[in-house]
Nucleic acid binder design. Structure first.
Lengths: 148, 148
DNA sequence: GTAGTAGTTAAAGTTAACTTTAAGTCAATA
DNA sequence: TATTGACTTAAAGTTAACTTTAACTACTAC
């Protein structure tokens, strides 16, 4: 079963021009063409594209994803490299989640801050609260925001 | 206590040119200047910059962060708007964490895939494994990657 | 056979967030 | 007084990842 670029783009939820751009950049060396030059995507191409999408979500750049594609093209002799690559991505994503969790902590502090300000009608109230007056889990955050 | 742009940049771990850029874009209307035109940052400016940093980490664009800065400048009458803004950022960050968690699931599948391929010396082994042969938590992921 | 829709390329344009450069000012030290 | 180093601005340059445009070709329906 083959798909045109438009069909595959729809299946993936991206623009067809994005797939053409990826192809131009050398990320899709596996895509076949019809006699008249039209791209013919198949199901294994879909799987490839899903992995490209996944790697992109881990924060990898297209030029590095391209290198991975070429590792796959090399076959079984690049298995070790590919395993290492995914282990690296795992670490990266875990770091990103941790960073977002810290960001969320600050956002939650600010939500509390403005809830408190809203009730009082002024930000002076949360601003002037002593450390003991604020929820325990928020104290560290406020200190971080003020100090070094 | 005042800081020059270089000192504040160092304190924040960014380039001084970045702070100048933010200023040019109107994100730092609160920064004072000396008679000779040199920026003088103080501790409350640091707090502002930490919040700008936080909002940036939530995925907000500078032009939208600028709007927030102007809400702060308006004083207590914009408390409700600011609360709403942070509630929105909270939702956004939670969504991003969820997305990264899904990405991590795929990466973990790929780690297992290449560990298995490494042991066998070929990707044919994990490729040809029946659903029942792979760890339960990975089955859904493989199906997702292959199908729609 | 013609209209319409989807495919093709190459090349130029877009956007965000910086970064660099050039030319100059200012304050402190040798 | 001269040098040094950090500050200033405006403007141009950079980068990644697309997106758009123009000019063309190919398949499908009527």
């Amino acid at each position: 079963m083959f798909y045109t670029i438009g069909e595959m783009a729809k299946k993936l939820g991206v623009a067809a021009s994005t797939l053409r751009y990826y192809d131009k950049e050398g990320l899709l060396p596996f895509v076949e063409r019809s006699e008249s030059g039209i791209r013919m995507f198949n199901d294994s191409d879909y799987e490839f594209l899903k992995i490209i999408e996944c790697l992109k979500h881990t924060g990898m750049q297209l030029k590095d994803i391209k290198k991975f594609i070429y590792l796959v093209m090399e076959g079984d002799k690049s298995i070790d490299d590919r395993l290492l690559l995914f282990k690296k991505r795992k670490e990266e994503v875990e770091k990103q989640i941790e960073k977002l969790q810290n960001t969320l902590d600050v956002v939650n502090f600010k939500c509390w801050y403005y809830e408190t300000a809203k009730k009082a009608g002024t930000t002076a109230v949360p601003d002037n609260m002593k450390d003991e007056e604020l929820p325990e889990e928020l104290r560290k955050i406020r200190t971080q925001l003020k100090n070094e």
